[in-house]
């Protein structure tokens, strides 16, 4: 390993569940100054165990995946919803967030570890944003929790770029024809967070109440926030 210069984390599409490991890190100081991949000591040990256990027939990757998916809302601090709720209620914060996502989130203090290059893209009445990123582990799991399994599948990534409206329709997300859909492809350097539009009927709501409406999918643009009164 290269102490002090940890840079990149990546995921394996061959072993889907490894994505979680790659996304995990002990050291969140991303400097992005290496051109090769790197895994933390813990990641290496977890991957080693999993590979050995899989080869010996003790572990089925799909079964592991199912267990982990069951906890997807219980992994990581899920700061994204709070950030979105604050942007909905605090115009100055929202402006700062859109100018420099990492910096604005850094000012919240107790919200930790968002990486150096988090870009926040805002949904508007005329534009819907969605994010794709399958290979690199720059998925901001600290903000969003785990990515859905399909998110890392290469068909999703390629189709999302070619036919975003069709992909969204598959998720039951209908975006009117007159709304532009912008697809953001996460790179090694940049991660994206979609700032969804605040649901109608939430006037006067507190940040805490609003945060309850913010779903992971709404922050990657494959869904919308919950609407008031809908079951969570």
């Amino acid at each position: 390993m290269f102490p002090g210069t940890t840079a990149h984390r990546r995921v394996s599409t061959a072993n889907d569940q490894n994505a979680y490991l790659a996304a995990m890190s002990q050291d969140h100081d991303h400097h992005h100054d290496h051109d090769h991949s790197e895994l933390s000591e813990t990641e290496l040990r977890v991957r080693a165990l999993e590979t050995v256990l899989t080869e010996k027939g003790y572990v089925e990757p799909a079964a592991l995946d199912a267990i982990i998916q069951a906890y997807e809302t219980k992994i990581g601090p899920h700061n994204g919803a709070r950030v979105v709720a604050k942007a909905w209620t605090d115009p100055a914060f929202k402006q700062a967030l859109l100018e420099d996502g990492s910096k604005a989130i850094g000012t919240l203090g107790h919200v930790s570890r968002v990486g150096d290059h988090l870009v926040v893209v805002e949904n508007t009445p005329t534009r819907h944003n969605m994010v794709v990123c399958t290979l690199c582990s720059c998925y901001p799991w600290e903000m969003l929790g785990l990515p859905p399994v399909w998110y890392k599948a290469s068909p999703y990534r390629s189709r999302a770029v070619k036919d975003p409206r069709g992909v969204l329709a598959d998720f039951g997300v209908s975006v009117p024809k007159d709304i532009e859909i912008r697809v953001w492809d996460s790179t090694a350097e940049t991660r994206f967070l979609v700032l969804p539009m605040r649901p109608a009927g939430t006037e006067g709501w507190s940040e805490e109440q609003l945060a309850e409406l913010v779903t992971r999918d709404s922050m990657i643009g494959t869904g919308f926030p919950r609407t008031p009164g809908a079951p969570s």
Binding site: R10, V11, T13, N18, H36, S37, T51, A188
Partner: peptide, 25 residues
């Protein structure tokens, strides 16, 4: 020993994998 061997192999795999590609053993 086996676990260490696999750990080192994953380390090697990460090292030779360019950024942005899936790491495969």
């Amino acid at each position: 020993d086996t676990l260490h061997r696999y750990r080192d192999a994953w380390d090697h795999a990460a090292d030779r994998t360019p950024h942005g590609r899936p790491i495969e053993l």
